[in-house]
Design a binder for these strands. Structure first.
Lengths: 338, 338
DNA sequence: AATTCTTGCTTCATCGATTGAGCAACAATG
DNA sequence: CATTGTTGCTCAATCGATGAAGCAAGAATT
């Protein structure tokens, strides 16, 4: 069973011997520019046949060592545990391959040290370009890469040293907040301020979403309870704890909420079920994120879906254009009927 | 802004010049075996300092070309759109890195041609080992890799030519079916046969789950309606269409279902909501997969969570042991309180 | 017939890191 | 004082693919 392993992999030299020609000719034929190098089509065919018979596979390492561009494109991504990043990664791979690039992706679990470590590793692998998705400290990554002459782009969270493609968080959050406020009025019979929960107060996206959240309240003439702005982090447990703490300190159970991600929503829903502070049906929710099962949850949860195809198209446009100006491109998110 | 790009990246030769020593010494110092090569610690320190100052990054391509093992480990994975594969990928990366391996992952969207293409590419990148996760045609991948002397392991779906690590689908499905049958009796007041939906009839896992499904019905003395076994594929739309067709051909809306994945469950839930054939509350569901929001869906859906940490531990044990016997290791799945 | 062009290859240096072999300088031993 | 050992390095070949330069043989041109 596939036992006698070929101690050596087949190289162009082996093929050259078998074909009675030179490694140079083999190389030219196999990488497709044999016309330019004036190899006869007979020899080309012969070499291709032999390569096929021998199951020849190019040694990329050797090939890349010789070439100037690697055509490897790297991406770092915080997590694989939600639809948003999952679709980013899946589509990124597809689009990269469609452009003849080889994508390598690394998950850095929102850890700044891991992000830098991953960037260093990718530099070793000679990436031509690195996309930092949702990076905690994108500018350090850009600096590190710039020192090796490698381009960087920021996705999802912006940086100040490289082009960034992000969702229009302000507009999305304002519209989402408005809808939840309207739902509140319709379902609970009165206008009331919402609770904001999830995300990191220090990150741009969360700050912008809070700004949109405030603006929508102002538009509706509803005052915000500052104790109800809780950017407690991303993990589900953090949202649960923040709500526990709010109640413990005498706060009232919030009837309307703006939840900053599906991951935080997981914590919110667990808290709702666990504490029973709120009737499952009388809670009015909005989520700045999208998940198919959340849509089925039955609470008429309003959701904002970030426009991943548009974001990635923009990313590749910037790459193709060669620009490296640190400008921020904002992509409108998708709300049903917006 | 980071404009004057270093036309050349720093190499060990540059460092050697700067340190007034040889490239050989620099290499020895930087890859850590300078003790074996009897480099003085003074020189070592000097070289390390200069490398640091210059922001030196190893050229992996050159390094790998020279070495015999690449320490690159590849994984192909069907999709990133569910928690199961998401956690596989995330944990695989972590475990690989912890072992000093460099993981590269590619998503092949359940397309056999893409799987082979991805495997070929990974061979070019000199992977030492390739994990085929949920592969449609794992044996062809094994054959391809064996021709280059590269080890393969199958995960999630078994193959016949390489070691496979899979969930104990039969036992998991039998237990899940039993629970749903019990729930049916409790909630609907009578024992009745369930509908099986989702997955590919041709894949091992689905076949084993159907076997467990049958066995549980037999245990309970309930006859199965053969028209209610619908391995219609993985996409949500396929489950929706299969149910539509069932009803169109005169079947009764099934009150209890065994759904083969969260992806299929998405379709089932959409169908339930859309057609209104069933009261949302009177449907009794089990899902051979796990998702946090499904757990919150409120229908008391029984779920089987595959034991990803145990599966990956087994994978790495097999890799470490060096075994390449085509044996199947079955890992028990996790049911709450099982 | 002499020259230039074209075709179809081969030769060889190169990419950057690794490593066996070798070598000078000095220390230790008989 | 001659030999052996040790320390601390350097040299040069090598991994596999690439492509500029070169070269021989025949075709075309003057």
């Amino acid at each position: 069973m596939s036992s006698l392993k070929p101690a050596k992999r087949t190289t162009i030299y082996d093929l050259a011997d078998l074909a009675g020609t030179s490694a140079s000719a083999v190389s030219a034929v196999l990488n497709g520019n044999w016309k330019k190098r004036r190899i006869s089509s007979q020899l080309a065919e012969k070499i291709m046949r032999i390569a096929d018979e021998q199951g020849y596979a190019l040694n990329m390492q050797a090939s890349l060592l010789r070439r100037d561009k690697s055509h490897i494109i790297g991406m770092i991504v915080p997590k694989y545990d939600n639809r948003y990043f999952g679709s980013i990664v899946e589509l990124f791979e597809e689009m990269a391959r469609a452009r003849g690039l080889f994508p390598i992706i690394t998950c850095t679990r929102r850890d700044p040290e891991l992000e830098l470590e991953a960037a260093r590793t990718m530099l070793s692998y000679q990436v031509d370009c690195l996309i930092a998705t949702g990076a905690t400290d994108p500018d350090r990554i850009t600096e590190l890469c710039a020192a090796s002459g490698v381009r960087t782009l920021n996705l999802d969270l912006p940086g100040s040293l490289a082009p960034s493609v992000i969702t229009d968080n302000f507009a999305g959050a304002r519209e989402l907040t408005r809808r939840v406020l309207v739902n509140c009025e319709r379902r609970l019979g009165r206008r009331q301020s919402l609770l904001f929960i999830g995300g990191r107060g220090s990150d741009h996206n969360t700050a912008e979403r809070i700004r949109g959240f405030r603006e929508a309240h102002a538009d509706f003439g509803v005052a915000i309870d500052e104790a109800h702005i809780l950017p407690c982090g991303y993990a589900p447990e953090k949202a649960e704890k923040a709500l526990d703490k709010l109640i413990a300190s005498g706060g009232l159970p919030p009837q309307g909420m703006f939840v900053n991600s599906t991951i935080s929503l997981e914590g919110v829903m667990r808290w709702v079920r666990r504490t029973g502070h709120l009737d499952d049906r009388s809670i009015v929710l909005g989520c700045f994120d999208w998940d198919p099962f959340v849509a089925l949850l039955g609470n008429e949860i309003e959701m904002v879906k970030q426009d991943v195809p548009a974001m990635l198209s923009t990313v590749f446009e910037i790459i193709d254009s060669g620009a490296s100006t640190p400008a921020i491109t904002q992509v409108p998110p998708l709300l049903s009927g917006f």
